[in-house]
Write a protein that binds this DNA or RNA. Structure first.
Length: 257
DNA sequence: ATGGTAGCCTTGCTA
């Protein structure tokens, strides 16, 4: 089963690029972030045309996540548990072919020293609590999405320039490591130890052209999922197209028997 | 030198 995560930065604008990538890459499950639309405005029919079921947690203008799957998605959880007052559309989770899969959009957190950063850290704590709940079940699961965390300086084109950014703060990295220390595995790093591989390039200052990016889109695997993973990579091709997202897809493949 | 780009039911906010 091939599982991908892709921050599309507006599903409306990115639909042509997404559809052509789906036809080419043929993922079984796709976790989308920043769809930036209400569930009712999501292009369900166009995706059904390529054989995908859709589960959408939408929001006007900002955020919004979705789960696309060739097989039906069961037992859907909409929203990250742990704070009923949190209205931001950043999490959807469901079971596909026996694998529990979440599409998550972790808060950016900039600027640091504002309530945006404390919201980010609180959100990471809730995600950790959710991971602990899932771990008890001893099932294969994948937490995939835009984490807005560069785990180490090897995931940043210029660590000094990003030193004060919320994506590289020690507290952000500590939160990410807390997930790893539960026993979750960064799928990409199993197969790619090399530094300076990125999943995001800012639109500004020629970052894509100069390959000056960040690795912030991750698939974290439960031990039972990590036992099955046979490949993982970043697919840079959608980022080079006209009207590209500032992110590109990251994927992994699980052996199903 | 605090710029630059992209997307949003826009005139500022978010990333």
């Amino acid at each position: 089963m091939k599982i991908a995560t892709f921050n599309v930065n507006s599903i409306k604008v990115r639909l042509p690029i997404l559809l052509s990538w789906l036809e080419e890459a043929k993922p079984d499950v796709v976790c989308l972030q920043e769809i930036k639309c209400l569930a009712g405005d999501f292009p369900t029919l166009e995706l059904k045309g390529l054989g995908y079921h859709t589960e959408v947690v939408g929001q006007r203008s900002y955020n919004g996540v979705a789960l696309l799957s060739k097989a039906p998605a069961l037992d859907v959880v909409a929203g990250l548990p742990g704070d009923d007052a949190d209205a931001q559309a950043r999490y959807v989770e469901a079971t596909v072919e026996g694998v529990r899969i979440a599409s998550l959009y972790l808060p950016n957190g900039n600027p640091v020293a504002t309530e945006k950063f404390s919201y980010k850290l609180a959100w990471i704590k809730r995600l950790k609590a959710r991971a602990e709940t899932l771990l008890v079940q001893e099932i294969p699961f994948v937490l995939a999405g835009d984490y807005n965390v560069c785990p180490t300086d090897a995931d940043v084109f210029d660590p000094a320039a990003l030193r004060d950014d919320a994506l590289c703060q020690p507290e952000s990295r500590r939160g990410f490591r807390a997930l790893i220390n539960l026993g979750l595995v960064d799928a990409f790093r199993i197969f790619h130890p090399e530094p300076h591989r990125y999943s995001f390039w800012d639109y500004q200052q020629g970052r894509w052209y100069r390959d000056e990016g960040l690795r912030i889109d991750h698939l974290l695997l439960s031990p039972q999922a990590a036992d099955r993973v046979i490949a993982a990579d970043i697919d840079k091709s959608p980022r080079g197209k006209d009207k590209a997202s500032d992110h590109t897809p990251v994927w992994c493949e699980l052996a199903m028997r």
